[in-house]
C-alpha cells in the first residue's frame, strides 16, 4: 500500500478538484488514457453524490503497489442520510434527484472492484478499485 491522499467535498468545484487529483494519480501509476477517463468519471460520480445527498464528505485515494500488480483504490465517505435499499440505488435509472440514475451502477462498471456500505441516518462508505492492465 502506498501513500494516501484525500480531498474534502463541500462545494461544487471540489467535484472537479477530486477528479483532477484522481486522474493525476492514475496517470502517474501508469494507467492508459481510457482507464484514466474511467477513474476520473467514477470519482466525479462519487463526489457529486456526496455533494448532492450528504453535502459534505471526503474521497481518499491510495496507490496499491504489489509485486505483481499496481492499482488505485478510492474510498468515498460521508455522514449524510445514508441509503436504505442498496439494491435499489444500484439499478440503472434509479434516482431520487431527477438525475439519470447512472452514477452508482456506472461506477461499478467503470472500476474492477466495488463495495458499498451504508446505514440510514449514519452515512455511506463506498470503496472502488482499479488495476493497471
Amino acid at each position: 500500500m502506498g501513500l494516501q491522499s484525500c480531498v474534502n467535498i463541500n462545494k461544487e468545484w471540489d467535484i472537479v478538484g477530486a477528479r483532477q487529483m484522481g486522474r493525476d494519480i492514475a496517470r502517474e501509476i501508469g494507467f492508459g488514457t481510457v482507464d484514466q477517463a474511467r477513474i476520473a468519471t467514477a470519482i466525479s460520480e462519487l463526489a457529486r453524490n456526496i455533494y448532492l445527498y450528504a453535502e459534505t464528505g471526503q474521497i481518499c485515494f491510495e496507490v496499491i503497489d504489489n509485486i505483481n500488480q499496481k492499482g488505485i483504490s478510492m474510498i468515498a465517505i460521508d455522514s449524510g442520510p445514508g441509503i436504505r435499499d442498496i439494491s435499489q440505488v444500484m439499478e440503472d435509472g434509479f434516482s431520487t434527484s431527477g438525475g439519470l440514475g447512472a452514477g452508482l451502477p456506472g461506477v461499478k462498471r467503470l472500476m474492477d472492484d466495488f463495495d458499498i456500505k451504508s446505514e440510514e441516518g449514519k452515512g455511506t462508505e463506498i470503496r472502488a478499485l482499479k488495476w493497471v492492465r
Binding site: R38, D92, L100
Partner: peptide, 14 residues
Amino acid sequence: IQPAVAMTLIDLGI
C-alpha cells in the same frame, strides 16, 4: 467525442 469519453459513457449506460 473522444474515444475514451465514448467508452466511459457506455460504461455509465448512457
